[in-house]
Amino acid sequence: MSEHRARVVFLVRVPQERTGDFLRAYEAVRHLVAEGVPGHLVDQVCRCATDPEQWLITSEWARLADFEAWERSPEHRDLVRPMRECFTDARSLRFVVHAQTPEPVTSVIRADPAPVVVTGGG
């Protein structure tokens, strides 16, 4: 099961007066992670549409073991400390991707479509 992709979800509360600090800290973390943490695929930060202090941070990993190795590293603790200092509450969940819809197929549109030839009697 550890060979499947994984999604890690953090549900956090950030007081409105700490929003700027939180987003600056998140930007520092996401750029460093995206530039070189093995197994990291993508992450997002989302703000609740109905509660401005509720945030969702998700990250996708090639394998759950990749996230767990990153989370145990001293670099991780030091890097995320400024972000965690903004939280008044936090919950973390880990999921292994069980199934997924296929990636959409993009169609190729030619600039010069071939001419259509119509033949026949009329």
Score class of each variant (00 low, 15 high):
D43Y: 01
E17H: 12
S73T: 03
V8L: 08
L32I: 02
W70S: 02
D51F: 05
C48Q: 12
A25R: 03
P82L: 00
V105G: 09
T101S: 11
V80A: 02
A34V: 00
E85K: 04
L93K: 08
T88I: 09
V8Y: 04
Y26S: 04
C48T: 07
A28E: 15
G36D: 07
E35A: 14
E71S: 11
F87T: 01
V118K: 09
R91D: 15
A114S: 12
S92K: 11
Q44G: 00
R94P: 00
R24S: 13
C48R: 10
A62T: 10
P38V: 04
W55L: 03
V29R: 02
A25W: 03
D43W: 03
P15D: 13
S73I: 05
D43P: 00
T88M: 10
F10D: 04
Q54Y: 09
V45F: 04
L41W: 09
G39E: 05
E68F: 01
S2T: 12
E35G: 15
S107Q: 11
T119F: 10
W55H: 06
S2L: 11
P102C: 09
P104M: 02
L56I: 13
V116P: 01
V8N: 03
H98Y: 06
V8M: 06
P38D: 10
L93Y: 08
V118S: 07
G36P: 06
Q44S: 02
T101W: 06
T101A: 12
V37D: 00
P52C: 09
F10M: 07
P82R: 05
V96S: 08
A65V: 07
M83W: 02
R13V: 12
W55Y: 14
G39N: 06
